[in-house]
Nucleic acid binder design. Structure first.
Lengths: 214, 214
DNA sequence: TTTTGTGAAGTTTTTCACAGCG
DNA sequence: CGCTGTGAAAAACTTCACAAAA
């Protein structure tokens, strides 16, 4: 079953929403309601969910728990992914905190931290060992870590990556830097650029203002 | 001039890339090179840039500075956007730090912080006044703040928003929570869900593994 | 010769609209 | 009657391929 990328993105949104719906509200939800809460058309929601077969009840809607579990079976990890975080500044620390909270639900573990600050290297932070960035290739390999989250300054990113890819266990990178990083082509890289989102918001606000003045 | 959303997204990437190219490398760059560095086809890059008219030199490429300035004129803010951050945990603090660094380049200022912790409310953090979340409507209005960044726990998000929208100055929200927030329809909301990106990475890695075993 | 700029073709994604089921 | 599931139509987006400029 081949599922388009925009659909994947929305399924992740549906799952997050359903987790809340299950706690707070009833058991049944319609495509229309899901759509309204997320700013998506009902028809789009139904098309996305049609991948799971005839899972809704006509005239009624979808059973939230059943729907959640279908999405989770498709998207969810079947095993624990071992991850590491490079860069233990505020962002890195925020990630550790969230990760420890979220990791029960979503299956991943933070196995190692990396930094260059002497007061961090060699200590445990939130119970996780912090190593020097220069040892990243060795440690990732030793621990069999497959995913690296980069929360370092931009100008350190390529250096970190070059060392990290020495570990043949590494398969994916999530980067919070705005650096363009170069990796062997068998490694998957996703980027989150916080300030690009803020810029996008400003741009759309500006557009909106210009429209109003005409 | 109407520009499609995927194009906007890529233009932001080009701008980030060009800022680096201008520092480090030469003055001239081709659509092919831009594409390779960002994982985009050259023809796509050229189509995106064609919005600016005939700005490149055939047989040569684009002048990096000129190109940067064209993109920045289109996307960049024409004035300083006043912003506030709700939630001064690690994530909020990371944002303040970046914001103070980035705000010189991109035109915005952080005018106020909001939290509920007694040891934060009433103090200055990195030189910015921190107020109680319950006063957010009043303070945003007083200071004429137009953009709110939410870095609070999920379950506080709707409460914050409900108060914040009392300020008629508020135009846009950037949320780092995974909460589905409900706002008046004249307020623009963008969301960044860090863990959704991580999940997406895991999903694609899983897909890749399944493909290999067949 | 190299690389742009761009119509036209191709592909992907969204929306429509309605039959069909509970 | 209300809401799903889904082909078919429409819209949006990307890629091709090549003439034209430097």
């Amino acid at each position: 079953m081949k599922i388009a990328e925009p659909t994947i993105e929305r399924l992740l949104q549906y799952r997050t929403l359903l987790a809340k719906v299950m706690e707070e509200d009833g058991k049944i939800i319609s495509s229309q309601e899901i759509g309204e809460l997320l700013g998506i058309k009902g028809s789009q929601v139904r098309k996305d969910l049609s991948h799971f077969g005839e899972i809704g009840k006509r005239g009624v809607g979808y059973n939230a728990e059943q729907l959640y579990s279908h999405i989770d079976t498709l998207l969810g990890s079947t095993r624990i992914w071992k991850t590491a975080i490079a860069g233990v500044g505020h962002l890195g620390t925020a990630l550790i905190g969230h990760a420890q909270y979220e990791s029960r639900k979503f299956k991943f573990s933070v196995e190692a931290l990396f930094d260059i600050a002497p007061d961090k290297v060699g200590t445990k932070i939130s119970g996780i060992d912090c190593y020097h960035v220069d040892d990243i290739g060795k440690i990732l390999a030793e621990k069999g870590i497959e995913v690296l989250v980069i929360a370092s300054p931009d100008n350190a990113a390529q250096h970190i990556v070059d060392n990290a890819v020495q570990a043949k266990t590494l398969k994916g990178i999530l980067s919070f830097t705005s650096a363009t990083i170069i990796v062997p082509k068998d490694i998957l890289v996703l980027k989150v650029n916080v300030f690009a989102e803020l810029e996008k918001l400003f741009f759309y606000l500006k557009l909106g203002e210009e429209k109003q003045t005409h």
